[in-house]
Design a protein around this nucleic acid. Sequence first.
DNA 1: TTTTTTGCAAAACCTTTGCAGTTGG
DNA 2: CCAACTGCAAAGGTTTTGCAAAAAA
Lengths: 159, 159
Amino acid sequence: MTESPLTSPLAFESVDDVAAAIRADGGRLSTARRLVLEELFAADGPVSAERIATQIARKGPTFEVSSVYRNLERLETMGVVRHVHLGHGPGLYSLVGGGAREYLVCERCGRVTSVEPKRLDAVRNQIRKRFGYEARFTHFPITGLCPDCARERSNGQRD
Amino acid sequence: MTESPLTSPLAFESVDDVAAAIRADGGRLSTARRLVLEELFAADGPVSAERIATQIARKGPTFEVSSVYRNLERLETMGVVRHVHLGHGPGLYSLVGGGAREYLVCERCGRVTSVEPKRLDAVRNQIRKRFGYEARFTHFPITGLCPDCARERSNGQRD
DNA sequence: TTTTTTGCAAAACCTTTGCAGTTGG
DNA sequence: CCAACTGCAAAGGTTTTGCAAAAAA
């Protein structure tokens, strides 16, 4: 995150922070919900609902995927969580706090490159200037060929 | 949008053109397949498999969605058809010939802007220069806020 | 106790697949 | 005729939903 002179609008830096927000929102901090949050805080990248469920199940009682989805949905509405679609698989969830990331994905090899939003500002400016759109690559990534695949392609190699 | 002075690399300009290619590929032009192609040629934008099936069913015997998918898959492999994911719904299919399109989609209002690839070259160059990726917005669009929604957002209005 | 949350089962949605029967060439 | 194609039914993967039981406050 380096410098962030501006405090992020949502400063959820711990499970307790989120717990407070949930309570303020009329919610409760069930064991299950706490575990979901712990998984999200522990994850080093976006994770699927399925994965959250299985990780939690490994530490104790089974936890239904449907409940994970319900939790994630609520947290997303609250602005605590966000999800990204990296290809055709399930959506991947992560905390909003802790520095946003934007993504580039290779359509050929599946490689995912995660970057600080700042590094995409020049691209964003181009898009704004030409189309008026305010582009974000947090929910749907930039898609194309990664450097390696682009090189192979231009070397005339097969798909 | 409008003019496309350059001929596309794959010049399938009619159902018959495609039919010839299909036969050359060992395939047959069944009634159903011909209808799928006619729908694609008649469409003025990318359409879902479901829509193709219902449109065809309106003109005669029902046509299974699964068969539409099988046809689209084959046509896509042949390079005649392509599909794009504009958001969370079903994939939308279109003919490759007739000029490629790339897309920008508003996450808030769903607005879709379709542009000639050429107009995105500056953006592509930025991305190539900074990340080495060869970006394409034909399969997954650029996502963000359209001009109107971006303006509302910056005016401090509610979501 | 009261309201939220969960488990479980089921369904919704998009897409793929198997198989037997039909059809195009 | 024979391979390709279709209908039908079923399943696969992801996500949502209904409802009664369990748990948080």
